[in-house]
Amino acid sequence: MSIFVVALLPAATTASPALAGPSSTVERVSTAMAMAGVSPTADRAKVTADGSVSIDNLRPAVSLRAGTQTVRAEVQDAAAAGSSTGNGTRVYGDVARNTDFAITTPGPGTVQILAIMHRSSASNTQRYKLDLPAGAALTPVGGGYLITGSGGTVIGTVNEPWAKDAKGRHLPTRYEIDGTTLVQRTETAGAEYPIVADPRITIGLGVYLNMWGYELRATAIAYLAAGGAGLAVACATASRLPSPLNIIASIACTYVGSNAVKYLFRKAVDIYNSNQISDGTCYQIKLGNTGDRWKRVSASNC
């Protein structure tokens, strides 16, 4: 999975920090994240893929590989910029007018790209050039896209984006496709800077759902309380399911159909009934594989 995050910083009323120093860039990125109340950690029921990640040292760009499949995302028309690492984050100073970028890897197969705009004169539109595998295409789904291979198999996704300002308010944001470029536009009128927008992109030969033990336990209990095997589960009406089933189903339905979603619920009940759930342990199941089960994995997946 890879994640793009876009952040805008306010117009300065005093002299702004110099853009040249990598250490000051790291500090500005960290400040922007803190002010917007966003961290590079994933939300509940994190989706991961088994692709590998390679971050460019000189340009804000990243490649994700799974087997013979490669997806590359690069900030379009970005000037070459030196980078440094701070707190696990690689930063790129003064990439565009009043704009820094940063890339971090918050988990396995996961990348997060931050665009930091320091003044209102910086564009609120981010353009990411995508290089997809031969024959692959972007298929609209909800506010995002599926990345489908030449045979129609889903090899990744571009999840629906969101944006928040410094007060935690959600802002209107959307994707557009311009040729091979993914464009994100965020409406900033009336917002308080910094603004953080977070679309997500995944690629992998396998796509996995990850949950902490306490989340998995809650899912099993909710499924049983809602009727268990007799509960009707349909992706088209996933949002109507009781919480947290609605959240899990909505995430999983991005990748698989209704029967596969119901299967992962049943497997949650199986491990719950076996008394093998530890609240502080991360559990994982491969989406779309009806022979899989919830199993313990490294905490970094959650």
Rank of each mutant, 00 (worst) to 15 (best):
I177H: 02
K295D: 15
V158C: 03
Q69M: 08
D56M: 05
R90Q: 13
N259W: 05
A226L: 10
A36F: 02
R266H: 13
N159Q: 04
N159M: 03
I177A: 08
K164G: 03
I3Y: 08
A42L: 13
I285L: 13
W294A: 15
K129W: 05
A7F: 01
A220K: 00
K295N: 13
V269T: 15
R65H: 05
A11M: 07
R296S: 15
P22R: 14
A102D: 05
A218H: 01
G67I: 10
A78V: 14
A260Y: 07
T202H: 04
M35G: 11
V269I: 08
A11P: 04
K46D: 06
V269A: 06
L9T: 00
S39P: 08
I195T: 10
A18S: 09
Q184K: 01
A32P: 08
K164A: 05
H118Y: 08
G88W: 01
G179K: 00
G291A: 12
M35Y: 15
L114N: 09
S30H: 15
S150M: 03
G291S: 15
L287R: 10
N98Q: 15
L182S: 01
E187F: 13
S298K: 13
S243Q: 04
T254A: 06
E160V: 06
Q112H: 11
L132S: 05
T237W: 07
G213V: 12
L114M: 11
K295M: 12
Y128A: 06
I155F: 03
L224R: 04
D100R: 02
R293Y: 12
S63T: 10
Y208T: 10
P140K: 06
S250C: 04
V154T: 09
V154C: 02
S239K: 08
A136E: 00
V269E: 07
C282H: 11
P242M: 05
I247R: 09
D100L: 04
V261N: 06
I3T: 13
V111H: 01
T89S: 14
T219N: 10
R72F: 00
A234W: 01
A163V: 07
S239N: 06
I147Y: 02
Q284D: 09
S23Q: 14
W294Q: 15
A229Q: 08
D50F: 02
Y128K: 07
A81R: 14
V53N: 10
I201T: 11
A32D: 06
I248G: 04
G168T: 02
L19V: 15
Y223L: 10
P108W: 07
Q284A: 14
G152Y: 00
T254E: 12
I177F: 00
Y193D: 13
V71L: 11
S84I: 03
A20R: 15
D43E: 12
D50Y: 05
